[in-house]
């Protein structure tokens, strides 16, 4: 369905996307996980033809985005990160307008608008102006507008940013249903839980680079001999951290902001734990708790980048 090959993009000599390659199969739900500024939106803008890439190429159904933009645009639906709707006209009018922009006939547009409204659960508010909607409702119409032309590929750029948990769950359900009905999904987020829930395959992206790519299981298996230990300590000093980092088998150390807790990535075959504990005792630092974390994307991300997904 989608193939991204060696894509590069710079803004003012700053490389924002560095040699990114990945592909997404038909019917798949693909997650793009990365922190703020990782280059997710830039990547999406290039896929939908809004931003030109400097190098490489992108194909959708075998058509190059560079050469056949109009045909490709009909196949894909984009849910932009920002709400891109007209605030002073009603939800229904917005949907009708976007339907027409995709060349739907009058009758089709009307039918589809009602369908989409009920799909996102806002039939009752159809006549109200978008500006009177809550954040979550706007997000739902923002998604709905991308569904009017029944795209084969739906690309969603952080569709749940800044909304309440209830709306978020509603949106996640909606996306899951769409995927079940055969729509290929690309979903970007910096919430690991969303991506874990929705996506079959995941790409982890940081500073414009794909750090890891694979199914959830693949990725977690990569953690099989890499474990994350969370330690809560009574106090903490820089010297101690430096010592820990030098221990054989310790791959990364990360301090959780505003706490005395640290996450330590270790390689269990090297068994560095006893040495860490000894070091703490010698440095007069008491260990309050110590916990092995379940391998998940967050710990993988930590392992890969030494940083947390969310700041």
């Amino acid at each position: 369905m989608l193939k991204v090959e060696n894509i590069k993009k710079s803004f003012d000599q700053k490389e924002v996307v560095k040699n990114v390659s990945f592909s997404v199969d038909k019917g798949e739900a693909f997650g793009l996980l990365g922190p703020n500024g990782a280059g997710k939106s830039t990547l999406i803008s290039m896929i939908c033809g809004l931003v030109k890439y400097d190098q490489g190429d992108i194909w959708i159904d075998g058509l190059s985005v560079k050469k056949r933009p109009l045909e490709i645009k009909k196949k894909i639906g984009i849910v932009p990160q920002e709400i891109a709707l007209y605030p002073t006209i009603s939800a229904r009018e917005n949907l009708l307008f976007w339907g027409k922009m995709y060349g739907l006939t009058r009758a089709e547009t009307k039918r589809k608008a009602e369908e989409v409204l009920s799909f996102v659960g806002l039939s009752e508010r159809a006549k109200d102006k978008i500006e009177t909607f809550s954040g979550g409702m706007k997000r739902r119409i923002n998604i709905g507008a991308a569904l009017m032309h029944e795209p084969e590929l739906l690309i969603m750029d952080e569709p749940t940013v800044g909304i309440d948990p209830q709306s978020r769950n509603h949106i996640l359900e909606t996306v899951k249903d769409l995927n079940k009905s055969g729509v290929t999904i690309i979903y970007t987020s910096h919430y690991m839980a969303e991506v874990e829930y929705l996506c079959d395959r995941i790409g982890i992206i940081d500073q414009g680079e794909v750090m890891a790519l694979g199914t959830q299981r693949d990725l977690c298996n990569r953690l099989a001999n890499g474990t994350v230990i969370e330690m809560k300590l009574t106090n903490l000093n820089e010297e101690f951290l430096q010592y820990i980092k030098q221990i054989h088998g310790v791959e990364r150390v990360m301090i959780k902001p505003d706490t005395h807790a640290i996450d330590i990535c270790i390689n269990e075959t090297e068994n560095p734990l006893p040495e860490i504990i000894t070091l703490a005792v010698n440095a007069n630092i008491q260990i309050e708790t110590m916990e092995r974390k379940e391998p998940n994307l967050e710990s993988l991300f930590l392992q890969l980048t030494g940083r947390s997904l969310r700041d």
Binding site: C48, L50, K73, I76, I78, P80, A84, L85, M101, A145
Partner: peptide
Amino acid sequence: LETLARLKISPT
């Protein structure tokens, strides 16, 4: 409003 971007990603 970013509707311009949305117009540009539509086949228009």
